[in-house]
Design a protein around this nucleic acid. Sequence first.
DNA 1: TATTGTTATACTCTATAACTATA
DNA 2: TATAGTTATAGAGTATAACAATA
Lengths: 151, 151
Amino acid sequence: MTMDTPASSAPLADPMAHRLGYLLRRASSTMMADLGGALTPFGVSPVEATVLAVIGANPGCTQSDIARLLGIKRANMVPIIARLGAEGLVEKTPMNGRSSALRLTAAGESSHRAVEETMDRHEARFEAMLAGHDIAELRATLMLIIQPQED
Amino acid sequence: MTMDTPASSAPLADPMAHRLGYLLRRASSTMMADLGGALTPFGVSPVEATVLAVIGANPGCTQSDIARLLGIKRANMVPIIARLGAEGLVEKTPMNGRSSALRLTAAGESSHRAVEETMDRHEARFEAMLAGHDIAELRATLMLIIQPQED
DNA sequence: TATTGTTATACTCTATAACTATA
DNA sequence: TATAGTTATAGAGTATAACAATA
């Protein structure tokens, strides 16, 4: 015999609160939502900001390079790069008949700098909430979980 | 003068590797993908499995209760509960004219048990990868990051 | 033959607004 | 007046399959 908890009045039991996968998903979406809000003034999404950062750090890289690094499917890079190109932030210069080298335009560089500062502040805001916890250890642990994406 | 890294041959620099939000997102999607694969034999998605767990732990709860607990919008619960209802896993019994109490059916209970075991093994698999790291501390840190969703 | 970029497509998740009905 | 459930809709994100061109 199990008792039926009168769930409507009392707070619910959270059977997921102990699960790492669940906590990661909730923590991730909290930070993604915050970053999305912080980036709206610049008209770029978190993914676009990330791609700007990768191209900024690796001028001349290709779409496939970025896809592999970020764990995004090749096919899904197309609209991302197209949008960044349409906004005049990224330019493609053909390397050999099949790949193009990606670089930030002047506008892209300036957007990149603004976005990096925004991300820095965003990260600092959350790190402040973790005072007394070992953030380097947290990063190291997360890196152990991450597995490369096969395409 | 900045140098153009010959990005095509050498591995790319990863300017996001130090960012907590990025690492959380990658770690989360690694675990979500793994869980999704582990659940396919049961025909339920990670979200559906989570809702089964919540109803199993809180018989008689409402859709809105679950939405609040999991940070899902009220409107987005509708298709989730509809699917679980159509699969005969969850039943709704009207409480008062506007809310229904949710409970697992017999099939739902059995699905719930199978799914919990699958999640346990899934979690254990990842915790094994974190040997030597303090998982309780990891959970505590993640809980600090998570912020309740306003609807 | 393997890789790059692309098109098309579909499914899920998420978000908003608006409506009904009930408490 | 606030809450529960719903509908409709729109936008991301993600996945697959297939194709052309190139290395």
